[in-house]
Design a protein around this nucleic acid. Structure first.
Lengths: 122, 122
DNA sequence: TTGACATGAAACCAAAAGGTTTTATATAAT
DNA sequence: ATTATATAAAACCTTTTGGTTTCATGTCAA
């Protein structure tokens, strides 16, 4: 019941630059469609469609308040993307990817991060 | 002339499931087009087009060896995606995102990861 | 109740995406 | 030299995408 073979997945949802901007907007605060539209050079209907797609991918959720519908960010679905990325990070290994590997493979462990004196980094 | 406002960016390149599979394939080893094609239910031409798109996004690179063209993964472009993701991770914070924040904001620091006794997981 | 506002939904459209088939070219093998 | 292999490139086709315009509906304000 939780995986209804949805038409739009996260990867497709974030492929469009307008939709990525919408996500960024909504990350600041919940907004009604009309206010979101004000930030873009296109019609309200177009934005509504983008919101529908983002909603299908469960990246946003909308609630009706009075006569307006307010959308908010729902970032949890981005974990799918993150996991996908994690797989490839092992191929361009750097300090961060090593850390991530340890954390993700041994999630239950206690971790201590010890920072040394800040140095001049070019 | 070096940034020709490329037609396909990383976000769009990974939107297609076939292309994501191709990337996974190439992560194991360099492969010529024909061998890649063998893994998919479509024509060689179709795969060649996907490779072209991935190449535009600089996610793969191809070199000619004899009569074949071998493609390999070029994961560096995924950093763009990673950075994008990092911004949103602050909104669904968990242990990992805290770590990442520290690492990314203080990149030059020395880091020690201390693992405790491995426990029975799952 | 009458209008203004916020949205929803449908019909339509051009361009892009994702395939195919066909034709051409370079290299390898016999 | 001839043939088989590996790819490239072009023409074509269908579906999806990203937008529009138009019309209908629900809610708030006067």
């Amino acid at each position: 019941m939780s995986s209804p073979a949805q038409k739009h997945d996260v990867f497709q949802a974030i492929a469009d630059p307008t939709r990525r901007e919408v996500l960024k907007l909504l990350s600041e605060k919940e907004l009604p469609i009309s206010e979101i539209t004000a930030h873009f050079p296109m019609s309200r209907t177009a934005i509504a469609k983008h919101l529908h797609i983002l909603s299908e991918a469960q990246l946003v959720s909308g609630r009706k308040v009075g006569r307006e519908k307010r959308y908010r960010l729902q970032p949890e679905s981005l974990t799918e993307l993150k996991q996908w990325l994690t797989y490839f990070e092992q191929f361009w290994s750097n300090k961060l990817s090593i850390l991530k590997h340890i954390v993700e493979n041994k999630g239950g462990n206690e971790l201590k991060v010890v920072q040394s004196e800040p140095e001049e980094t070019e």
